[in-house]
Design a protein around this nucleic acid. Structure first.
Lengths: 149, 149
DNA sequence: CCTGAATATTTCAGGTTGTCAAACAACCGG
DNA sequence: CCGGTTGTTTGACAACCTGAAATATTCAGG
């Protein structure tokens, strides 16, 4: 009787699945709130914070930035403009292809990004309230969700 | 020795916590993508879809809408304006207080919201790939995260 | 080498979201 | 009745986002 996963048909979800969906929605909402708030503390918008965080890992051409952020390249132009005006990012020419401009975080940009990462409390603090077993279970379930698609 | 949760200090998170944070970030990103895409299929923006979904549960005064959406009331005015122009929402006078206007979903609005909810596949389809035990574990961990704050 | 297609970036126009301050109407306590 | 508070809207402004057009550069073929 333990056997068959009780067919959580995605068209007729069972109550358990519905509750999990509800909970995920709440987590998503809180995560966003927290992210925007952390960005605002550094006088950044959410979009600016995301872009700066990306560049903090490695410099990227404008085109790739747009792909990572899932938006149009013309949009990235403006965001980089504003970050560049504040000295957090700079455009560098690509020696291999004079069409492309590589955006890179400046030293100050990296400093701000690090500070921002540290003020991102949600998804870390509440995790501290979980036992190791729960965290392992959470990890496995999340892996399953992301891998299943 | 079972006692103390192995101190996942939020300033020096262990690798397990870091991975979970990473996974949550991915889930949040996918959830948002999916939500925006589902909204776009119905020619709605994310904000419009969220507001319409709220009104689909119960009519709400503008003020409360702003609280639920965590934004300024003046912002809600515009979003309701656009939804009202499309006949998905209507403003009704509150007989008890002539200052307040209650926004309510129209029949068409409810129809669109239902259709939207059904096209929201992420957070439901991948869940189907989890065993019942995993879904229970996920539920408990999420509850713990949300409650712990 | 030259031409034309393709690519990377920017610019521009237009729409949506969001804030803040100010206006306005209606409520309410004294 | 009066003054302060509350709910909604309006206006000005900034950021985000898209789509189309302009520009510069690369690259493949003839």
């Amino acid at each position: 009787m333990v056997s068959t996963t009780p067919t959580p048909d995605s068209r007729h979800p069972d109550p358990l699945t519905l509750e999990v969906v509800e909970l995920i929605g709440e987590v998503v909402a809180r995560f966003h709130e927290d992210y925007e708030a952390a960005a605002a503390e550094h006088s950044l918008t959410g979009a600016q914070a995301r872009l700066l965080s990306l560049l903090c890992l490695e410099p990227l051409p404008m085109r790739r930035l747009a792909q990572r952020l899932k938006c149009e390249p013309s949009n990235v132009t403006g965001i980089v403009d504003r970050l560049e005006a504040r000295g957090l990012v700079e455009r560098q020419p690509d020696p291999a292809d004079r069409r492309v401009k590589v955006a890179a975080a400046t030293g100050e940009g990296r400093r701000v990004a690090r500070s921002l990462r540290e003020s991102l409390r949600f998804a870390r603090e509440p995790l501290a309230g979980l036992s190791e077993g729960e965290r392992v279970a959470l990890r496995d379930a999340l892996r399953g969700m992301l891998g299943a698609v």
